[in-house]
Amino acid sequence: MPEHILALRDIHKSFGETQVLKGISLNVTAGEVVSIIGASGSGKSTFLRSINGLEMPQSGFLDFEGLSFDYHPESRFFPTATQLQALRKKVGMVFQSYNLWPHMTVLQNVIHAPIKLLKLPRAQAIEEAEALLSRIGLYEKRHSYPARLSGGQQQRVAIARALAMKPSLMLFDEVTSALDPELVHEVLVLMASLAREGMTMLVVTHEIAFARDVSSRVLFFDKGVIAEDGPPEILRNPQSDRLRQFLHRILHDEVAGVGAGYGGTQQ
């Protein structure tokens, strides 16, 4: 029996009258790389954001590394502020718009959380951050401010900032959608290398090539439910009409060869 690092059960979320998540359940095993695809408005981003409580579900259950939440407002297992912070320290998140802090240098962005939240000694935090920045090829930029970096570089720093907390799960929310096409590749390559190293990842993406070549599992979201859940092969052999239609629309636009080969699948 593989060990589930994250278990979600029956997650519901509405914005006013609009039901966005209609009872999502998902188990994630350590080392899995799960791509989440679907049309905009299908609930995939809201789902990702509900995992670390940036959106609070109205009901449902979460289990993650010894934390058990029941999102029903009256439940005594409803997460406290401290429990929510404990969850977030172990779950890294990267956003579409990078969200680096413009008043801090690249290095300061990366060491801020480890120093304040993990209570790392400053020297050690800097050492680890510099190792991370070398790894993503931005060591030379460590004293630059984010505004001096390209979008792709900023996004790689944002990934390093999340990794500095040594998370056991990483959430990627359409992290290449705001990038110029020529900068998408460097970010996807970094994500692929993380995947190869065994990082557990949930990736909301429009990059079908990434979902196909890098992830070990693909979820297709449709109208607030998981309409398909399977290995990347479902992208070649969709079981449902909805996924077939979705892929047709997406791949229709995709020029042959673009995005191919981000380094093979794991497992």
Binding site: N52, L54, A81, Q85, A86, R88, K89, V91, G92, M93, F95, N99, L100, W101, A113, K116, L117, A158, R161, A162, M165
Partner: peptide, 9 residues
């Protein structure tokens, strides 16, 4: 959001 997501209050 990026700060909250890291675990800051």
């Amino acid at each position: 959001e990026s700060s909250l997501a890291l675990g800051f209050s």
